[in-house]
Nucleic acid binder design. Sequence first.
DNA 1: AAGACGCTGGCGGGATATCG
DNA 2: CGATATCCCGCCAGCGTCTT
Length: 261
Amino acid sequence: MFKKRRIEKKKNRKKAQRSSSVKEGTTYQQEVEVNVNDCNIIQQIPSSLTLSNTDKYLVFDLETTSLSRNSDITQLAAASGLNVFQRYIMPRCDISNEASKITGISFCHATNKMYLNGREVETCTIQQGLLDFLDFFKLNELPILVGHNITNFDMMVLENRLKEFSMFSAFIASVKGFIDTLKLSKRVFPKADVDNYKQQTLVKKVLGIEYAAHNAKDDVLSLSELFSQKLQSRCVEDDLHHVNFNSCKLSLKPLVDKKNY
DNA sequence: AAGACGCTGGCGGGATATCG
DNA sequence: CGATATCCCGCCAGCGTCTT
């Protein structure tokens, strides 16, 4: 019964194809060969990393001017053990309304002053903030970065800003890899227990703690607790990604596009 | 709002089954 | 053998969910 219908549809499709095939031109020509120039651009995929019980974890979080991966960073925070790092950073572009509403951060370009919920805060330049951030890594030898949904947001924003100041290679050299607590949480916590996997929700449902979400420092401190108490022991090698992860993916994009074409 | 990823349902189509 | 039905798997558009 199903087949009959499908065969009918197929006939119709073929008819449509024939009438449009004239316009299609080279669509189905084979061009799957990879030329040598493309290969040179592609970064070598690093060998997989292994977890060790001597690893040090460094939780971090960014607040940014928008959701764009090319956003400027407005606040940068990190925690490693008892050490806490925190900087407010002067953005060079406007802070989107949504971002300002969520983070409580605003910036006056005329006076170069930044405000958190109306109160002025001390700032630094993006370059200085990044330098200090890299310095903070050195408190531990090759820490593993930890953050929520960092694979698809924070790592990309951070990578873009580090590259802008030619600090990406120094960054790669000073961390072992990174772990995304979003992916980890989806495996560890049953959906029925937590409703959703927003960081704020997880901290509330799992630790029973309400906190000032969307302030990088508070986000980092609460995620630190969640990670060390509930997640760290559940990490497997698959969760640990090389910091080149996104870079590699990006370098493969031309190939993928070619395939799709 | 921008963008990436995971999940899902529907579809295409090859392989197999059934019937005359 | 030919025609139809069923099964199964890969693919993909569309939607939901995270980040600020």
